Amino acid sequence: MILEVAILDLKPSVADDFEAAFRVAANIIIGMPGYISHELQRCLENRDRYILLVRWEKLEDHTVGFRGSPKYQEWRSLLHHYHFYDPFPTVEHYQISSLN
């Protein structure tokens, strides 16, 4: 399993619009091959910050399958315009450490 992690820093006063757009976008990602689950959590200390955690079966399910799909264009049109983010989020991928 791969964990996709994105810290989402929003511009002030766009959280309600972002959450509405994310509710629609979540339905897109749920149907993708290799998708396992996701969580969107809002920061308590900084109400304009969210963390998005998406679990994929393998890295390519996200980087090739999802990002290379027509559904990704729908996702982008809902969430990736600069109306929401400042700065634009960096996405990283993690796997369980062999120390576990």
Rank of each mutant, 00 (worst) to 15 (best):
V24M: 08
V14I: 09
T90G: 06
R49P: 02
D86C: 11
Y85D: 04
K58L: 05
H38F: 05
L99A: 10
A26V: 01
Q41A: 15
L10R: 02
E60D: 14
A6S: 11
H83T: 11
L78I: 09
L52F: 07
R49E: 04
I2Q: 06
V64E: 15
S77D: 15
I96F: 09
F88P: 01
R23G: 00
S98K: 13
H62K: 04
E45H: 14
I7T: 10
V24K: 09
T90I: 06
D86Q: 15
I51T: 02
E60T: 13
E39N: 07
D17L: 06
S69I: 03
E19A: 00
M1A: 11
G65V: 04
L78W: 13
H62S: 05
L53E: 03
D9W: 03
F84T: 05
G34T: 02
S37A: 06
R76M: 14
L3M: 06
Q95A: 10
V14K: 06
P33I: 07
D48S: 09
Y82S: 14
R55F: 01
M1Q: 10
G31Y: 01
Y50T: 06
S97M: 04
H81I: 10
K11Y: 02
A20W: 08
L79K: 04
R76E: 14
I2C: 02
V91I: 15
L79H: 06
E45R: 12
P33A: 09
Y82E: 13
D61H: 12
T63S: 15
Q41Y: 12
L52M: 08
T63K: 08
H38M: 03
W75V: 05
E4P: 00
D17Y: 07
V64K: 14
R47S: 13
H80S: 09
L99R: 11
L52Y: 07
I30H: 12
Q73F: 09
L59R: 15
Y35E: 02
W56I: 00
L99M: 08
I36T: 04
F66T: 05
Q41G: 11
K58H: 10
G31W: 00
Q95T: 11
Y94T: 05
L10I: 00
D17R: 07
E45Y: 14
Y35K: 00
K58E: 15
S97R: 05
R67Y: 13
D61M: 02
Y72K: 10
W75H: 08
A21I: 03
W56Q: 02
R67S: 07
I36L: 06
P89I: 04
L52R: 01
E57W: 09
T63E: 14
D48K: 03
A26P: 03
P12D: 12
Y85F: 15
G31D: 04
D9R: 12
Y50E: 08
K71Q: 13
I28T: 03
D16S: 08
L52E: 04
G65I: 03
L53Q: 05
I2T: 06
H83I: 05
D86T: 12
Q41N: 13
